[in-house]
Write a protein that binds this DNA or RNA. Structure first.
Lengths: 210, 210
DNA sequence: AACTTTTTTAATCATTTGATTAAATTATTA
DNA sequence: TAATAATTTAATCAAATGATTAAAAAAGTT
């Protein structure tokens, strides 16, 4: 009758309904701005069930936070990790994957960046002592490229800040950018698709100009 | 005896003490995560004085929000507005000013970006119907440069996203970037100073490569 | 069907929190 | 100095909020 028809959260267990409601609200507004009653209403369940399944608001939040972190960071590791691609190819792949992820989860980066600022240590173990798998290999590749004459030197932090900044920032600043430029939502997301091709070119230009 | 010695908030009126405490906490943690008692404690005043001087938590927050917005956006307009500088010169000036501002107010961008997301309309009038003075002139200059053969075409949104992304993002993502790259705080802020010179070069390279 | 376990509900608790009040203190004015 | 106004304080209120409880309903088991 009703297979996954599109958006409705049918055929979800109570526990899943709560979690999805919590994910939506927490990711949108952060821990402090969300009431447990908001979550219960959004999920369409009795308030007590939240505590029945998840013990406390904080424990529920922690689950969502961890999943959001993984979604934001682990994108990188999976496909970029193994292959023996060139630096340029990896960049192109990474940007492509990341922009798709951001298009589907536009609230994610602001949530993650806020959480990291509030609690820089809680994330520490998630990127196990500063080692997000894919990224560290990418940086190693950058450094070895630094040695060869191919591209001039660039500090890993500058490189990462540029790559993530160009990729992620437009999503974080979307309302501001739209307001200033007058671009509507459709056009905005089309331009984000354009950036899949543009950012790798720009990064290359940046690497070859200092 | 004690002139402005450096950091202490001496010789501040009660009203000013409350406002400074509120600015610090609200900018750091947002509206919902801050208690009026936190503000009173931080300011070292009686809780009732907050309402005596500012009526409500919301009204106090609105004042701080407006000032933070102006600080974040109006940087641009002042000095970049009048001069008859070239596009490149304006970019260099803008990046320089903005990085100094961000170094002194590292919490500002995340606060502003959060607020804009929560309430995109409240900001609308602050950048009066999409017209931040300095920026609109900058974009006009970009578009006219688009016409001349000097630099290839680039959409204003891409241009702005790149410029702001390269400039602002490192501050928003500082804890993450530090954790991944292992760069300590001193080195980080030194690199932000480097970016004053680097970003204009990079932007130029980006404009000349598509 | 009888019984047990799991899930759900409505009601309630204890704290927290934004705000107010009336009295006390300090500063200002006449 | 006396009177008046402004500021500050401690106590308190009412609503919001996270959490719990006991009973009811549903699902599962024998």
């Amino acid at each position: 009758m009703n297979q996954p028809t599109g958006q409705e959260d049918k055929v979800l267990s109570t526990e899943e309904k709560i979690k999805e409601a919590a994910r939506k609200l927490f990711t949108q507004k952060g821990f402090a701005a969300v009431r447990t009653r908001d979550i219960a209403d959004e999920a369409g369940i009795n308030l007590a069930l939240l505590n029945y399944y998840f013990r406390s608001k904080q424990k529920l939040f922690d689950i969502i936070m961890l999943e959001n972190f993984r979604k934001f960071l682990h994108i990188v590791s999976g496909r970029v990790l193994d292959d023996s691609l060139t630096l340029e190819e990896k960049i192109a792949l990474l940007v492509d994957i990341e922009i798709d992820m951001l298009t589907q989860n536009p609230d994610l980066p602001l949530f993650v960046l806020n959480e990291i600022r509030v609690n820089p240590n809680k994330i520490a173990m998630e990127m196990h002592s500063g080692d997000v798998p894919g990224v560290s290999r990418l940086l190693a590749q950058l450094i070895s490229a630094n040695g060869s004459g191919e591209a001039p030197q660039m500090q890993p932090l500058h490189f990462l800040a540029n790559l993530i900044g160009l990729t992620v920032f437009p999503f974080v600043g979307r309302p501001m950018l739209q307001k200033i430029t007058g671009v509507d939502e459709d056009a905005f997301y089309k331009m984000m698709q354009e950036r899949k091709k543009l950012i790798p070119i720009w990064i290359k230009a940046i690497l070859n100009c200092s």
